[in-house]
Nucleic acid binder design. Sequence first.
DNA 1: CTGAAAGCGCTTACAG
DNA 2: CTGAAAGCGCTTACAG
Lengths: 347, 347
Amino acid sequence: VNRIKDIALKANVSVGTVDRVIHNRAGVSESTRERVNKIIEESNFVINPVASSLASKKEYRIAALTPTSIKSEFWKLPNEGIKKCIDEYKTHGFRLQEFNFDKFSSVSYVDAFNEILKWKPSAVIIAPIFFNESLKLTRELEDKMIPYVFINTEIKNVNNLSFIGQNSFDGGNLAGKMMSLMTRENSEIAIIHFHKIKDNHKAIERRIEGFTNYFETYNSSCNLSIHKIDANNAFKELAVQLDGFLKKNPNTKSIFVPSSNAGKIAAVFKKRKISQLNIIGFDTTSENISFLKSGDIDLLIGQQPYKQGYDGVKILVDFLINKQIPKKRYYSSIDIIVKENVEYIDV
Amino acid sequence: VNRIKDIALKANVSVGTVDRVIHNRAGVSESTRERVNKIIEESNFVINPVASSLASKKEYRIAALTPTSIKSEFWKLPNEGIKKCIDEYKTHGFRLQEFNFDKFSSVSYVDAFNEILKWKPSAVIIAPIFFNESLKLTRELEDKMIPYVFINTEIKNVNNLSFIGQNSFDGGNLAGKMMSLMTRENSEIAIIHFHKIKDNHKAIERRIEGFTNYFETYNSSCNLSIHKIDANNAFKELAVQLDGFLKKNPNTKSIFVPSSNAGKIAAVFKKRKISQLNIIGFDTTSENISFLKSGDIDLLIGQQPYKQGYDGVKILVDFLINKQIPKKRYYSSIDIIVKENVEYIDV
DNA sequence: CTGAAAGCGCTTACAG
DNA sequence: CTGAAAGCGCTTACAG
């Protein structure tokens, strides 16, 4: 047996005092604090978190700042992961408030952030899609001593507690490897980049760098070219652009889409009955998955977005309850997803 | 507020009675049982598991029957996953006893199983490597009403609570796809099968079927052949066999190893300075990983063995604590692992 | 600075 | 068949 009571007995103090020492609360003389701490260590005492949560009326208010899944289906899974983890720890006093923004509008991001500050959270989990805005707003969290973690997108040189997401360069590099396996020598490979969509710009640039790097490193005979598509992802607009692209680049054999929009492109090609192109894209949106299954997309790189949300909250839980200091960065896995294993992937 | 107390108040009974109803204990008249149940439903009451575990002195004794990691490194990860999950639920009364056996000895399996029966577990998690022995022994668990789950290896038509593991056929099929991407047309592809190692025989057969199926389905021009190697995996014995194999099959371009022994084979070829062969194998043993990194193995199919152990125990936890009925089968993901993403894989 | 007591939401004998 | 009371290992006012 090793309860607070046992420690108290050994130290000749009351359980209240032991509790104060354990939680570093004020009002204990230095001498007894030391004595109690020594006994705690010697006895290898660890607090019973179950009893602790039950007795404590503490509430942990977690705010989540993520894009709404309505405008961007990708975000459904991280949001679900966040909710699931909070749900598992609700008996420990965890409450979630979601603050969703439109990932195409930095204004909505700033608005949501300000709502969070008003709500006075204990900690926040953020998808910091907008770089400059985030720099300013995270500083306010720091002033108020509110810990925050980033998921999916990393901003460096700020005091986030942790980051969970993919290494974009290595994601692109892996896509490059898979592309080189799928494409013959001396092929034309096009990288199609929607440059009107500004969110997550850095990650996409890094994916392109990684992709290009693979072909350079292995001295490939393939010819890579970047094509900036001046369209959002509406079918009609996109079709016009892609028709133009194909006319100018009739020898294209393979297409790399460094964003989650591969499905949009596949839809156009399918309509045009063009099926001999190899397409590699990112992320398991339902559209991407369905084109992967039909064979119109050949391969997707996955990043387990559900897990990013779940793990982001879990890091906060462990930090708030057990004072566990997380690593500064946890990399998500870089999954290779093809028709043959898509039924089994982790989300 | 929605506590047992509140239900008791509404039903005009004591909390003790509500407790009896919740847990389906005897000693409640049918009429009050019905009344209380109705109020529980109407109030959407769910028990507080934290308070429940604290008050209850119940112990859940979990026995794990898995191969010792000493003789088979693969099993280190499942065993760690099992331990981790138990550790997370120790404050809920979970205790683990490991019963390890030598995966090359069915006798040690039966012995360990008998030890388990003596230990009187609440539930058991089993890697049922030996088919016939398992049939008989699981029946004894059923007689004693002890629930059990299988991990990694499935035995069908018995009353296991659940199974967590990979679909072997689809694992082999995926390996076939990746092989066909890596190998030129009209190549000789060898399937190397250690037929002296009898454990997990069925899974390996199914992987070979899946692999072969891929090439048949796509009408490949490659020529597949199965080579039964009459050796255990000791380097010297294996080298003799492989030398003979290469002499007889000098045009072999690619090798598929449907077991976790790809590294053993790669070691021989490396020694012989043969480096132009494509090798695809299974599982992320440290040997396999190191040859993957050095380029002597080209690709591995992973099955997240740590997660198999962890999830297997988690299923028992949810079943014993929350009476949650699991699915009969949970398929592990089928991961494609290459040099470029090996740093990021889930274990 | 320290202790005694009540309470968190359950479960478990025990009494009737 | 049912209830009252003690207790699980903590935390939280409150009193001194």
